[in-house]
């Protein structure tokens, strides 16, 4: 029963996405342009120590995928605020619906949209010489889903109590974007200042990035025997689970009246 509700809500997300072409263009176009422009511009001067002949277009490619997930997640979270603002949310809240279905519907729908966008960008992977194996593709998919769930659930939890989209933009710029920037998506951290390396190491997004980058370069048995990969996998799992729990907690909060003040 719960599944049917979550699926119906996710389907709604998808329909809304497809019916707003600007949104499709915006969320696919921005990471794509970033990747092409930054990639082409930085490539000639990009000579990271110990990374061989890797071009910046290739280096930045997994980061661009991650950025796409981030943007898809952010757009979906903005719709949380719109739903509240435009009244749709109240009919969901007044219905006998479990709070998990509300979160699962939104996050599931957002993940679906994000994966669809990534698929478009994945077509470009062979152009920069990145061709994952079949098993690698499955692991890549797993990484993309985990990162997408983590991003969306985190944004959902933040957006839930907000009533202005401009407020959410601020959160996005000072919190969500930096999480992505400091994940190693834009630049390798080798040789970076110590504090930066520490931030990157504790940033769960860095681990999600590992899950997306590694499958392009190693086959499945190697990855599953690699402690760094497995470590990243567990961090990303825990991060996504915590973000979901955070969202569930937020949805469960109902505005409550206070006790009458004595003497009043």
């Amino acid at each position: 029963m719960n599944n049917a509700i979550a699926i119906a809500l996710a389907k709604r997300e998808w329909i809304r996405f497809i019916r707003q072409p600007q949104r499709v263009v915006g969320s696919v176009g921005q990471p794509l342009l970033f990747w092409l422009f930054l990639g082409s511009g930085f490539s000639p001067s990009f000579k990271p120590p110990g990374m061989g002949e890797i071009g910046y277009l290739e280096y930045f490619y997994p980061g661009a995928l991650l950025m796409m997930l981030l943007f898809a997640g952010i757009f979906s979270c903005i719709t949380v605020i719109e739903d509240r603002d435009q009244g749709f949310l109240q009919s969901v809240l007044a219905a006998p619906v479990a709070r998990f279905s509300i979160v699962a519907g939104k996050v599931g729908g957002a993940a679906l949209i994000a994966l669809f966008q990534c698929l478009i960008l994945l077509v470009a992977a062979p152009m920069v010489g990145l061709v994952p194996s079949l098993g690698g593709t499955a692991l890549l998919l797993l990484g993309l889903i985990l990162a997408s769930v983590g991003f969306t659930a985190l944004g959902f939890g933040i957006a839930w109590g907000m009533n202005s989209t401009s407020g959410f933009h601020a959160v996005m710029m000072v919190f969500l974007m930096p999480l992505w920037m400091l994940s190693g998506a834009l630049f390798p951290t080798m040789g970076a200042p110590f504090w930066l390396q520490t931030v990157v190491a504790v940033n769960p997004i860095s681990h999600a990035l590992t899950l997306i980058r590694a499958p392009f370069y190693a086959d499945v048995p190697t990855l599953l025997a690699d402690s760094a990969y497995l470590g990243a996998l567990s961090v990303a799992l825990v991060w996504a689970a915590l973000c979901l729990a955070f969202s569930l907690w937020r949805v469960g909060l109902v505005e409550k009246g206070v006790s009458p003040v004595p003497g009043k």
Binding site: Q90, L93, A94, V254, E255, K256, G257, V258, S259, P260
Partner: peptide, 9 residues
């Protein structure tokens, strides 16, 4: 009544 708010008592 619609469950959007919990009363004090």
């Amino acid at each position: 009544l619609t469950g959007l708010l919990r009363p004090s008592s």
